[in-house]
Design a protein around this nucleic acid. Structure first.
Lengths: 297, 297
DNA sequence: GTGAAAGCGCTAACAC
DNA sequence: GTGTTAGCGCTTTCAC
């Protein structure tokens, strides 16, 4: 019987099926840049797990461009996507309202909507950014550093929280932070490079540097090598995101390792529950990160 | 008028539309592993260009598992995907026949179907693997190396062609290759590590090593560092794929840089033409790669 | 031009 | 159980 079907060459048409049953089995992953190792690691986990549940994953790169993001969201709504996993470009009430009005099951990753003043029926999966950054800061200050500089992602709650964690570390260790050693910039490798060069060429360069994500870290590290900065003697270096290269370079880089696979897994599971029952209340899951100490600090 | 539509909250339903017009605007990218930097670079380019043409990209990770790949293909057919960009796991007549019977517009990247003995109405976008590998081999042999070892991806025409290029280099430089210094393995970081350790622990270790892709290179380089091999004095090292880390490590790594953005761009453009006219004859586009000489050779 | 009607391929509901 | 039918929301056709 199945054989007969197969031999007749019957192929089901999911488009018709999806129209009839008024749902699809496509979930969308909306992130800034899939080449960012953090997002590609999360994306891999999302895709693997989605596959095991028989769902497809559509990939949307927003380049942190709000208009592009909203265009994608409109298309996803039109395509009747089953759900969305998104790291939203802006974490403003405005843009969350836009997202909420789609009425699609949504899980927000990497960025927090804790402080948004409207009720959101969405799940939030983040890490303990502030505590993790504080731990990194305490570790570095404990290495007898007095003047930490920092390069943080601009526009995300994530970057802001990590900055605050570094401030916490200063307070905890009784060191006065130097406000003009901190930069908030676009999360791109060349931008990290530029910011690092600028900080190091000051008349009074810092004795430690923190980068708030893997792309900024890559750019900063490239600059440090090019400027022939002696790490960690002259400058201690630490960052977020444990990528392929951080253990390979000399000196290897101290990082906060995010549980990317776990983030993807939890995001998919929350999303599937929300697809089954869209009326679920919003939730926040805070996953633990891990400080991996290497030679750069 | 548009405003009225917007204010009434009308949302088009693409599923219904797609059923009616019997096509979708979804193209699928079917690759082994989106975390492989080669595929994530191509994927980024595909996604960017697809967006500009108003198309969505579905991501499928096959893990080089043929069954998983064919399951994906069945789903893509059922979903009425507009077209497929694929780096097929097996390059056998059998599996190309399976692919061809889907009757979906298809562009094959990274792997060649030059030697398949059935007529395929597909486009093929590859690089000059054999020539590129030969250039790398000639460069290394020119550094006065006599005993090159190699780690190549197993199961892909790509790995095989790169191996043959290294053989060509030997012939050209009048050096006799040592057959038992070449390994064909799964394209994964830990596998590259293992193979490298095994080659270096021989009683008669090689004085040069070539890795045929970015993941194998990462594993091999990690092993070389761990074994404290002196590069390039004791061993020259070169690989395919210019990734974030190859210029950052010490010594920086000589690589064959593939035109990933161009590969993605050409693949999408060929696919769109084929979607418009599925009867087009098959084609093969061979793009040029570039040898980037750094400190490791 | 404007409006009504058919039908894409499927599933769910209903009748037998 | 098995067979028939309505209809998901759109586009296209055809009539006016």
């Amino acid at each position: 019987m199945f054989k007969a079907v197969a031999e007749l060459g019957y192929r089901p048409n999911n488009v018709a099926r999806n129209l009839r049953v008024r749902r699809t089995n496509v979930i969308a992953l909306v992130v800034a840049d899939i080449q960012n190792p953090y997002f590609s690691a999360v994306g891999k986990a999302v895709q693997d797990l989605a596959y095991s549940y028989g769902m497809q994953v559509i990939l949307c790169n927003t380049d942190e461009d709000l208009e592009k993001e909203q265009q994608y969201l409109d298309v996803l709504k039109a395509d009747n996507a089953a759900g969305i996993i998104i790291a939203p470009t802006h974490q403003s009430t405005e843009s969350f309202r836009y997202l909420a009005e789609l009425q699609l099951p949504t899980v927000v990753i990497d960025r927090s909507f804790r402080d948004i003043d409207i009720v959101l029926s969405m799940d939030n999966v983040v890490i303990d950014n502030r505590a993790a950054a504080a731990a990194l800061g305490v570790h570095i200050l404990g290495r007898n550093r007095k003047r930490i500089a920092g390069i943080f992602g601009y526009g995300s709650t994530t970057g802001r929280e990590r900055y605050e964690g570094v401030m916490d570390a200063h307070k905890q260790m009784g060191v006065l932070p130097e406000e003009d050693l901190f930069r908030f910039v676009a999360a791109k490798e060349p931008v990290g490079y530029e910011a690092c060069v600028e900080l190091l060429e000051r008349p009074d360069p810092p004795d430690a540097l923190v980068a708030s994500n893997g792309l900024l870290a890559a750019g900063a590290y490239r600059a440090l090598k090019e400027l022939k900065v002696d790490i960690p003697t002259q400058l201690a270096f630490g960052s977020f995101d444990d990528t392929l290269w951080t253990p390979m370079v000399s000196p290897s880089v101290t990082v906060v390792r995010q549980p990317t696979t776990e983030i993807g897994r939890v995001a998919v599971e929350l999303l599937l529950k929300r697809i089954q029952d869209p009326e679920l209340e919003g939730s926040e899951t805070v996953l633990k990160s891990e400080l991996v100490v290497r030679d750069s600090t």
